[in-house]
């Protein structure tokens, strides 16, 4: 992968779309320091991400993972998992922490009673919402959502996306939304970037790009969701 240039602008959602293996997840992991970067810069809030301490980076960038069955520690209860996100903010008094956990659970439309539960007693959709709450707990400037719906069933996907959209309307933060599914990306994003073989082939506001795709690959992607053609 080379020459990938992505800008997640303030308060907007950038959808990154492309086929499996095109390097979308590698970008996400590189931003978070989970994958090595050989050249180039990754900045968040004007600072080179790799120069930041783990804690500082946690405040700037957070991630929601694809697989809610693998991204929650089976040994920790929901409250503990979300509190771990809060720890990135520094020391909070215990009472404030409990209140914040409750607020976050409500934010993702989960009952605060779930805080005592272990992940194994949650459904896939509930787990993914816990993962969202955990990421939001660190109050990141940028949230990265890496294929967050692809491990979920269709009806549950809608739920999770609607929760995310509701939060985007209520709280101001930027998001990099990665998916191979154009329909999902289009539903949630303001801007879109199309990636193929490690190269960004097209980028722009979502409506413009989808209304008049310039790159053949984008057109190919669009054609893959035929039932949406009449709408555009």
């Amino acid at each position: 992968m080379d020459n990938v240039d992505l800008d997640v602008t303030d308060g907007r959602v950038l959808g990154l779309v492309g086929e499996s293996g095109s390097g979308k997840s590698t970008i996400a992991r590189a931003v978070l320091g989970l994958a090595p970067v050989h050249a180039g810069t990754i900045t968040a809030g004007g600072q080179e991400v790799r120069r930041l301490s783990a804690r500082q980076r946690a405040r700037r960038v957070q991630m929601i993972f694809q697989d809610p069955f693998g991204s929650l520690n089976p040994r920790m209860n929901v409250g503990g998992i979300i509190r771990e996100g809060l720890e990135a903010l520094g020391e909070l008094p215990a009472r404030e922490r409990a209140a914040e956990v409750t607020r976050l659970l409500e934010l993702v439309s989960l009952s605060p009673d779930l805080a005592e539960r272990l992940p194994r007693r949650l459904s896939g959709g509930q787990r993914q919402r816990v993962a969202i709450a955990r990421a939001l707990a660190a109050r990141p400037g940028v949230l990265i959502a890496d294929e967050i719906t692809s491990a979920l069933d269709v009806s549950v996907q809608a739920q999770v996306l609607n929760v995310l959209r509701g939060i985007l309307a209520a709280e101001r933060f930027s998001m990099l939304f990665i998916s191979h599914n154009l329909a999902v990306v289009r539903y949630i994003s303001d801007d879109i970037a199309v990636m193929r073989d490690g190269v960004i082939v097209e980028t722009g506001p979502v409506d413009e790009v989808l209304a008049a795709p310039r790159h053949p690959y984008t057109r190919e992607l669009l054609a893959a969701i035929p039932q949406l053609h009449p709408v555009t």
């Binding site: 992991r29 978070l32 320091g33 989970l34 301490s53 783990a54 804690r55 500082q56 980076r57 946690a58 960038v61 957070q62 991630m63 993972f65 694809q66 697989d67 693998g70 991204s71 929650l72 520690n73 089976p74 771990e84 996100g85 720890e87 990135a88 993962a131 955990r134 660190a138």
Partner: peptide, 14 residues
């Protein structure tokens, strides 16, 4: 290699 360890790393967990 599981995601929850990666998640904890992104949280800056020591």
């Amino acid at each position: 290699s599981l995601d929850y360890v990666a998640a904890a790393r992104t949280m800056g967990v020591p």
